[in-house]
């Protein structure tokens, strides 16, 4: 079974709306991201908002389309492009000057969610480890707390992805506490399991709330 098939198998066990912590190792990070978005868009037929604090939206859009994920119902929030001085002209994209402007990310998300045309919507936040680069730990933890509760209040299918090796321990702990479900992808921290050699597999856990 490929990592994509394994992730989709885990996703199929989840309810129609959840706060999911997608915790991946570095090696499988993009595959985990693409497999999850593919499931949301192609299987569940959700539209939604993809927030990037890791790579410019133009790159992500190309990757999605190359993987057979139509992006017509996906709106984006890009907090990376201004940092690297790139062009900010992508369709259906709101731009935030920096990943440190966490409240502005929330406001742009609200605006973009209103533009999504599908009845059911998802929010995919890429990534918590990306935010950890630009934000103090206490601020980031406060944000995760506020953000996850806000998404839960709106009953949105929310995915918070993070690269295991680059996620501060306290942030990881809070994500486990605040999210409804957790999918572990690839090798666990501190040990390379035998299955990791063939992609690592995906494991579903229940969150702390």
């Amino acid at each position: 079974m490929t990592i994509e098939e394994d992730i989709k198998k885990q996703l199929e066990k989840l309810p129609d709306s959840t706060i999911l912590y997608l915790n991946s190792d570095t090696k499988n990070y993009y595959r985990a991201m693409l497999a999850t978005v593919d499931f949301l868009v192609n299987k569940l037929k959700y539209g939604g908002v993809y927030i990037s604090s890791t790579r410019p939206v133009s790159d992500i859009r190309i990757q999605m389309e190359a993987s057979g994920i139509p992006t017509g119902d996906i709106h984006f929030v890009d907090s990376v492009i201004y940092l690297i001085g790139g062009e900010s002209r992508e369709e259906r994209t709101a731009y935030v000057e920096s990943p440190s402007m966490l409240e502005t990310i929330m406001l742009k998300l609200d605006w973009q969610l209103k533009q999504v045309g599908t009845p059911e919507k998802f929010v995919f936040f890429d990534s918590m480890n990306g935010l950890a680069v630009y934000n103090e730990e206490k601020l980031l933890m406060e944000f995760i707390h506020v953000f996850s509760n806000n998404m839960r209040m709106q009953d949105l299918y929310t995915v918070l992805i993070s690269v295991r090796e680059q996620t501060p321990a306290n942030v990881d702990s809070l994500l486990r506490l605040n999210c409804d479900d957790i999918i572990e992808v690839g090798a666990s921290q501190g040990k390379v399991e035998e299955e990791a050699v063939i992609g690592g597999g995906a494991k579903l856990e229940r969150g702390g709330t």
Binding site: L102, E103, T104, L107, K108, D110, W111, E142, V146
Partner: peptide, 19 residues
Amino acid sequence: HVSDLTPDGMAIVPLLKWG
């Protein structure tokens, strides 16, 4: 609170305390 001028007008969320 933090505000943002969106095409729909002003949008507002609470300021994060640690920020």
